[in-house]
Simulated assay, not measured.
Amino acid sequence: MKLFFDLFPIILFFAAYQLYDQLPPDIVAGLDRIPFLVLIPGAPENAILFATAVAILASVLQVGLYFFKHHRFESMHLVTLGLVVVLGGATLMFRDPTFIKWKPTVVNWLFGLAFLASQLFTRKPLVQRMMSTAITLPTSIWNRLNGAWIIFFLVSGLANLYVAYAFTEAVWVNFKLFGMLGLTLLFVVGQAFYLTRYLNPSEE
């Protein structure tokens, strides 16, 4: 359930993009009521502009619902909201999808920098702070695990840029949801297999 909630804006972005061409003309005409969304009849960028506006609204709703339920904010949601508002807003203002296409890369690289900074400048790397209540590992293994996450974020950001510039917009939209999610799941499964050698029966 939490995974679905975290992916909520991305799922709505994907759905809005896929469904735009199937919307009745009267509904499309009413979309101009969404702030900063200007759709020019027949313009090829209309679908991604609409999807971007939906993603911005979904991110605002996501942060609001999380705060309403938990009375606090989650860092990942705030980072995502800030970037989707800035880059998505630029996409709507300049009618240029390039800005929103950079958003997954910027998110991944920011998290990669956070993991790197935690390893260089703090006593415990971020991955240890996140997982130490569930598993006990030697310091060298925590550092190795943290380094793996840094590489993962770097590679994910590069993969997003490659798909964004080497393939069509429709392919990138699919990759943004299914490709990035697939890469993350493969990495997490690989990490789980790696950690099994360090688990005792109680931790398993």
Rank of each mutant, 00 (worst) to 15 (best):
E203F: 00
G30F: 00
F153W: 08
R33V: 15
R129Y: 01
L110A: 09
L65Q: 11
N146S: 14
V171A: 15
D21C: 00
P44M: 08
F167Q: 14
R129K: 12
T80Q: 11
D26R: 08
V155H: 01
L12R: 08
A166L: 11
V173H: 11
S140W: 08
A53R: 04
Y162I: 15
L83V: 05
P24A: 09
A90W: 04
F67G: 02
F175H: 07
F14Y: 13
N143H: 15
L186T: 11
E203V: 00
G89K: 06
R95D: 04
G64A: 09
E74A: 15
A166I: 06
F193M: 12
F121H: 09
I11G: 04
T105F: 08
G112C: 12
F175A: 10
L39W: 02
M180C: 12
L158N: 03
Y198R: 01
M76G: 09
L3N: 06
T52W: 08
A29F: 00
L81I: 06
E169H: 08
S156A: 13
I141H: 03
M131W: 02
V84I: 15
A15Y: 03
K176E: 14
R123T: 07
S59D: 02
V84N: 04
L19H: 04
Y20D: 06
G157D: 04
